[in-house]
Amino acid sequence: MPVEIPKETWTGRVLEVTLGATPSEGGTRGRTVTVGGESTLPFLHYEGTIPHRPVVAVEVLDRRPDDWSLLLQEAWGDALDDPAAWAARGVALGASLVALRLEGCHPDKDGRSPQEAARTVQNVLKAVDVPLIVLGPGQPEADNEVLVAVAEAAAGERLVLGLCEDKNYRTIVAAALAHKHLVIASSPIDVNLAKQLNILISDMGLPLERILIDPTTGALGYGLEYTYSVMERLRIAALTGDRLTQLPFICTAGFESWRQKESKVGQGVPEAWGNFRERAIAWEVATATALLMAGADILVLRHPETIQRVVRVIDRLMGQKEA
């Protein structure tokens, strides 16, 4: 009995977004990274094209994190004091991008100046040749000051600046426009809010090809299903031609899963949770795997072993056989 394989005919596709710029393009990167461009659902190569693989970014802080899981502290060791070395090690492990979070600029942390932040960014740019995502400290005023200084100091690099939210996006978008960068548009797990923010940002003159969607990530066991479904809904809308949803996804899987008790606490937890190290890494890997199934284009991850494993999972889902 001949079975005819059903195929969907999609009319839309995700926009291709290129991060980083080489010297001939006005930057200093050894390579650029393009994400997006899919014309089908995740990894269904038989019914559309997936020109660019999803990629992993290593999350790097500008200061030694004071509340990170001991497992992450052990894994990265002294690199935690040196963002440039940390980033280089992440890239050596297989990360295609570096996501630098300027936590030290938060007024509650070290309150570092925008100039210091810009220097840190320069140092990381020197240490690696991959494109850079730069995240502000997460406090609107500090974000604006810091990201403006960073955008100017790294003009032309096609950095990704984040996060733009509905209440705070103008300054960051203006800085991206002035200095040829990209932005992350972050909205709280909602299709319409995501579209609305993309309208606001593109109305300022930033082309959609320079915007990534952060749908707001929930970790495994902590709201993952909401992120999963909002991503599936956005991606299906993109493939059926809704322009404002046709942007690649960036998901902070590492940040979210390492915040949870399962990944932070090794003692005084139920025995059924099993071995601490294996569980914590599995938590991040499982979160990342589910997000890949829902359409993640960039996964920001924390643990060295997760980075290596998730890169290998992507290899296989892109049809590359194990070496």
Binding site: G221, G274, E278, R279, W283, A290
Partner: peptide, 15 residues
């Protein structure tokens, strides 16, 4: 292995 089954069961519960 409990440390692997627990996240898997959690994922099933979520989805």
């Amino acid at each position: 292995s409990p440390s692997l089954l627990y996240p898997l069961l959690t994922l099933r519960l979520n989805l």
